[in-house]
């Protein structure tokens, strides 16, 4: 009895240590982020007056946000990126799950070879030029699909899914098959629901990837109306970098640049709390018995 009491106190101490560490971590992450947020609502001159680093502004000004939406391409860029993120992620998930599931079946002939090929394409690629031609020849140039199709399956995510499916107990699948369920049925009614944590994770990874698409936006898109968010954001951030052209250009202020950063990051960050709900412990409990 003494032993377990000792242990309980020891565990409580550990709990508090963990709380402390996590609290410190929160500070380390939040402070710089708060700086970006506050710099977007603080007039530049006040920012400078207080030494360039302000966490709590004395006055809030949303001028930068107004300026951002009225003078830049951010509005259309938002729509483009929303489309790419939603449609793109849907395609990503369907294709990836369909591909990863069979690969998790060790007894399937050719599985080893296919996985090797998958990894091979992770390491080797033909380069930007031939890929550009393929994108061009498949009619995707200067359209939002060029930001979706060429990257439709991320091998890394397929591997994550495959591993997870593989780790699920075989008895689960055998039981269903014996009951007469076909492969698709098993996939949809057993594998997918029970793999929620990894599926939500992979979905999150894809969403972030689609939201952040940049290089493809420069290479494959020419019209201003189709530019995705990250391309427009970079234009705003970089446009103040050139001295010689100050004569003509209106470089956006630091405040507006910070506003651009906030506007392009906040929406996708909001997705994360929704995904967190699926990180529930015990999802596998009773799966075999039940």
């Amino acid at each position: 009895m003494v032993r377990s009491k000792h242990k309980i106190t020891g565990e409580r101490v550990l709990d508090w240590v963990i709380y402390l560490i996590l609290f410190l971590l929160i500070i380390i992450f939040v402070v710089p982020l708060l700086y970006v947020l506050s710099a977007s609502v603080t007039p530049y001159s006040e920012l400078i007056r207080r030494g360039g680093f302000v966490i709590v502004p004395s006055e809030l000004s949303f001028d930068a946000y107004k300026e951002l939406f009225s003078t830049s391409l951010i509005g259309s860029a938002f729509k483009n990126t929303l489309f790419v993120t939603i449609a793109g992620t849907a395609i990503n998930m369907v294709l990836s799950i369909l591909f990863a599931y069979p690969l998790s079946k060790k007894s399937l002939p050719g599985v080893k070879f296919l996985t090797l090929m998958l990894v091979f394409t992770m390491m080797f690629n033909g380069g930007t030029i031939p890929t550009y031609f393929v994108v061009k020849d498949t009619g995707l140039l200067n359209s939002l699909w060029a930001l979706i199709i060429p990257g439709a399956i991320a091998q890394y995510n397929v591997i994550l899914l495959k591993n997870y499916f593989q780790s699920m107990p075989d008895e689960l699948f055998e039981a269903a098959t014996i009951d007469g369920a076909g492969a698709f049925r098993v996939l949809l009614s057993i594998a997918v629901p029970l793999a929620k944590p990894i599926i939500m994770t992979v979905m999150l990874l894809y969403m972030v990837g689609n939201w952040n698409v940049f290089y493809a936006g420069i290479l494959y898109i020419n019209s201003n109306e189709l530019k995705p968010l990250q391309v427009v954001l970079r234009e705003i951030l970089m446009s103040s970098q050139n001295m010689l052209n100050n004569v003509d250009t209106h470089a956006p202020s630091l405040t507006m640049r910070m506003a651009a950063i906030v506007v392009t990051s906040v929406p996708i960050i909001m997705v994360y709390p929704f995904v967190q709900r699926y990180f529930i412990k015990g999802i596998m409990v009773g799966a075999v018995k039940g």
Partner: peptide, 9 residues
């Protein structure tokens, strides 16, 4: 090269 300026078409 227009340093971020995009005139209305």
């Amino acid at each position: 090269l227009t340093w971020g300026t995009n005139p209305e078409p």
